[in-house]
């Protein structure tokens, strides 16, 4: 696939901690076609946010390549990279802490234009800000309001406007709806999908909510302790999950329907172990119901079991 917008190869990000080397992202590869959405799901601490920020080079990767339109951004000179930066943006998780409380809505949305020296006249800036506010559904009377005056849904719209005003091609959405109520969450999800169509955006959508990820993505990657466990087209992953972790994750979601009461289900025992100095073998082995001796030695490769369906498990061949 040479025409991929973004291609990530064997990306690694380790952090040095006092306890040892923390493997936040360990050997993750994927590629993204323009206009599509890749969903990343996993529980807290599985490295999905680190993956998002490393792909945007907000963290320097420990190893691996990130090809944006075929150019490796990890090897770029600073000046070269600054030219590309406006084309890849991020929407942050928490609309309460990711906005500067001392800046008005207008200032917040205009900031990326000023920082990247895209607009030079004040008139041009206000014009583009007004246009963007209209696009994301913020009333123009709010231009001089401050974030604390607004509710979570409107604040998240500011975050989206800030990311999109530079007209990026690629956007990392890091849990953009998890801090919001369901009715507001639905409004924001619809907005993100409409914007994807009208601006031809490519999303890397990070979330822990499986129903949201199925709704918005074409392809889904399930992560556990820094590694990709399973990657498949959205419908395929939900109808035919193969990795034991994916199966457990899907079984654990409470389903809002009348017959889910009194349903007994297979529970996953134990908790996520530490990503510091992980043992060789499958990361999920400690909690896996089908664990065998060979799971605990050597590395488990990601294998294609069906076209487009990749699983990292010895028992799913």
């Amino acid at each position: 696939m040479s025409n991929a917008l973004l291609e990530v190869r064997n990306l690694k990000k380790y952090f040095n901690t006092s306890a040892g080397l923390l493997h936040a992202v360990d050997d993750v590869s994927f590629s993204l076609q323009a206009g599509s959405t890749l969903g990343i799901v996993g529980e807290s601490g599985c490295g999905k946010s680190t993956l998002g920020s490393t792909v945007l080079f907000l963290n320097e990767p420990t190893g691996g390549e990130i090809l944006f339109h075929g150019d490796d951004i990890t090897k770029m000179k600073k000046r070269e990279f600054h030219r590309i930066r406006p084309r890849m943006q991020m929407i942050f998780q928490d609309p309460y802490s990711s906005l500067n409380g001392r800046m008005s809505v207008h200032q917040l949305i205009a900031e990326p234009l000023i920082v990247n020296k895209i607009c030079h006249s004040k008139q041009e800036i206000s014009q583009r800000v007004a246009q963007m506010m209209d696009t994301v559904g913020l009333a123009s009377r709010l231009a001089n309001a401050y974030p604390h005056e607004l509710d979570g849904g409107r604040r998240q719209r500011i975050g989206i406007a800030r990311a999109l005003i530079l007209e990026p091609e690629f956007v990392v959405c890091d849990e953009p709806v998890s801090a919001l109520d369901v009715s507001i969450q639905a409004q924001i999800l619809n907005l993100l999908m409409d914007l994807q169509d009208s601006m031809h955006l490519t999303y890397l959508f990070i979330t822990h909510d499986l129903s949201v990820v199925r709704h918005i993505s074409q392809e889904i990657m399930v992560m556990y302790l820094g590694q990709c466990m399973e990657k498949a087209p959205a419908d395929e992953l939900f109808t035919n999950p193969m990795h034991p972790y994916t199966q457990a994750l899907l079984a654990a979601i409470p389903v809002p329907s009348a017959d889910s009461r009194h349903k007994r289900r297979e529970l996953l025992q134990g908790e996520v172990s530490s990503p510091v100095n992980p043992k060789p073998g499958c990361r999920f082995a400690a909690r896996c119901p089908h664990v065998s001796a060979e799971c605990c030695s050597g590395s488990i490769p990601l294998t294609e079991v069906k076209p487009g369906h990749f699983v990292s498990c010895l028992h799913c061949r």
């Binding site: 369901v182 009715s183 507001i184 969450q185 639905a186 409004q187 999800l189 619809n190 999908m193 499986l210 129903s211 949201v212 199925r214 709704h215 918005i216 959205a234 419908d235 939900f238 979601i253 389903v255 809002p256």
Partner: peptide, 13 residues
């Protein structure tokens, strides 16, 4: 609520 079983329809918020 996005559906877990059905196909991706537009949400009706």
């Amino acid at each position: 609520i996005p559906s877990l079983t059905g196909h991706a329809k537009r949400l009706q918020p």
